[in-house]
Design a protein around this nucleic acid. Sequence first.
RNA 1: GCCCGGGUGGCGAAAUUGGUAGACGCAAAGGACUUAAAAUCCUUUUCCCGGCAACGGGAGUGCGGGUUCGAUUCCCGCCCCGGGCACCA
Length: 813
Amino acid sequence: MPEKQYDHNQIELKWHALWEKADFYKAEENSAKPKFYVLEMLPYPSGTLHIGHIRNYAIGDALARYKWMRGFNVLHPMGWDAFGLPAENAAIANRRPPRDWTLRNIASMKRTHRRFAFSYDWDREIATCEPEYYRWNQWFFLKMFERGLAYRKRALVNWCPKCATVLANEQVVEGCCWRHEDTPVEQRALDQWFLKITAYADQLLEDMRQLEGGWPERVLTMQRNWIGRSEGAEVDFALAAPAAGAIRVFTTRVDTIYGATCLILAPEHPLVEQLLDAPGQARAKAMVDARAGRDPGDIAKEGFFTGHFGLNPYSGEKVPVWVGNFVLMGYGTGAIMAVPAHDERDFEFCTKYGIPVRPVIRPVDGLLDSTPAAAFTEDGVVENSGQWSGLASAEARLQMSAYAQRKGFGNPAITYRIKDWGISRQRYWGTPIPMIHCPACGVVPVPEEQLPVILPERVEITGTGRSPLENVPNFVNVTCPRCGGAAKRETDTMDTFIDSSWYFYRYCDPRNSRMPFDPRKIAYWFEIDQYIGGVEHAILHLIYSRFFTKMMRDIGLIRNSEPARRLFTQGMVIAEGAKMSKSKGNVVGADMLAERFGADTARMFVLFAAPPEKELDWRSEGAEGIYRFLGRVFRFATRNIGRADYPPAGDADRRALRKLHQTLKKITEDFETRWHFNTCISSIMELVNVLYAEEGEISAEPMCAILRHLALMLAPFAPYLAQEIWAELGAEGPVFRQPWPPFDPELAKEDLAEVVVQVNGKLRGRIYTAFGAPEPGLIEAAKADEKVRPFLQDKQVVKTIVVPDKLVNFVVR
RNA sequence: GCCCGGGUGGCGAAAUUGGUAGACGCAAAGGACUUAAAAUCCUUUUCCCGGCAACGGGAGUGCGGGUUCGAUUCCCGCCCCGGGCACCA
């Protein structure tokens, strides 16, 4: 009879169908078991599912299964992309996430994407929308509006001409749109809705201490830099007559203010308009334009004198006011005092235009070297600074900013690099912002009971840069909820990052129609125990969702301050030497792999190719090897289950069992520590190689134990095959609801210790002894070894190093 | 420029605390089975030298130094690749 062949289609279909019904993936509501919430980061809905996503899921999935088997009450809702978390979608995810989110479901995942994620349906040229999906976003928006955390203002914003929409600062990558890496972002002044993430800047920074250890240092550093807190002072330089008023500058080095030899305004600074004549304003405008979309490093510093002067409030000195293209309007006050002696950029600018350089900090011996680069930035002792001379820099800063406050021309100040989150988008898709513009009452929120505000269907996508919703009279024309007069609905929609900021809360209570979620459920499940995703979200999703968490805490919905206790960032997937991305056109789709070899192979191969935190250089040839391996396992199992004739017990049993327990030990330890699944899988391969070699000699009882363990071991990585073997063994139920098998350290032990013999550190031979053999005997045996002897002949042994059970090294002369 | 990673065979990689470098897999070559092919099973495969051979010797983890009985691993200097930040006052 021909041997049964591994047919992944048949196996995966069989168990997939069963698992659909079984509902066993559901986390238990009232469980005595410890809880474990594991979540993979979602792919962006408009993106293609590619190897990077498989990798993300494969890691989380393996971990979730292992945790189940270790007796945790596991919530692992991400099985497909429930990005926008409509109740229905998330409910499915919770109850039966393709649960094992099988790769063969990719087609249906894509459909789900279209249906529930806020994307335009490109196939049908219309958009579908899911009302429940908007409700809670809008509800949160109203809560924030009540608290002043959501506001509208006219602002210069980033504009992507290709998307024809506004972008948040976080979504601008190297001056270009994050989705169109070749399209420079433009600046436009528009009325926009903002969320006041800056109100939480300190908390976002402060709470990172709780995350240390659990989050990668790299991500924390990126967030710290992004928030960019700096302490300093704001100081007013009164304008000399004939101009009136003052220029407020921000500095972290108020101790150097006696060295300030000019003031520089950003070209967009409001004073430019007030102080300058038309040609001057035009020059400033030209600077702004020249800067758009360019790498700041490539732009030479330039500026011009305004004809006006400011008065240094400490020294009374009259200093010229300039406009400079390197001064940023978006940071600090948009104006600086230039201290060329102690700031590299100021130095470059001032020497170019002949503005004097005047040192006011003396380096302190031993603290500073004499290179100017160091003197630019380091602290020292203040000099040539009137009454402050002689103070250490740090002390001078404290006293001088306090003085400014006392005298009323300044104050200590903290500035952040992070800015408020602009969430207005002029796209069709996305949650409508629930606001109404009334000519009489102004901006009026839509009453809570009228939520959700739903997008109209069949909207023409114009791509003109104005919201397509403006052309839908039914949507736009409303009555004002306050005065009942005619009013216009807000047509901007929300950034889709809003949706992803709290989806993982909704997963805990996906069908709640009265609240975003039940706080009690959150109290049980949160914080997320393990969040897994790519590092590319380090300052987008991961900062927004931390902000949302704090906001929800402050409105009393939740108790936790942080969303996730631990974060694992998997390595990027590289193809042809470049990051896999749509714009580079090197995306390897998940479909191909799953279609050809099945979900088990796809998942396992991605894990096998590299350790998860490392970059994965994609080459699909290797998948064949994993497929072959799974076939080997399948055939071994099927032909050895219920065989009529097992050989009698013998040495082979011991060897096979030893390898088994060694493998089990390795996998267990890896899951608990470093997740190097590539070596876990290779150790299973080694085991199978041993099993093939010993196959004919393994007796009945060990064979049965081995097959059982093999199924359990494979369950995290190749659940379908594991389940198939499990069922063939006659066992009931899903294999990964079994307890994870303990390894037996005694069985895992080798009979004899292999002791390496070196002469002068070079390997010359090996001897085999019982474990714990005493040193003298070991040395004798080592000396006596045939391979070693010639190297000791006519030599004097100066020193002998013995590492018990491992190594003997003779140092000879 | 600054801050993180990383550099090991033809390729992906392993070596977990300083102790056998190259596990496991891919690709390649050879063999068995087969009318044949596929599939499967077995063998070889870091480089150089010697040998018909089993085998023996030497070199070798980006480069140059150092510490050590012993270094892919620790230290110093450099080169290259990837990622993040970058007029943030």
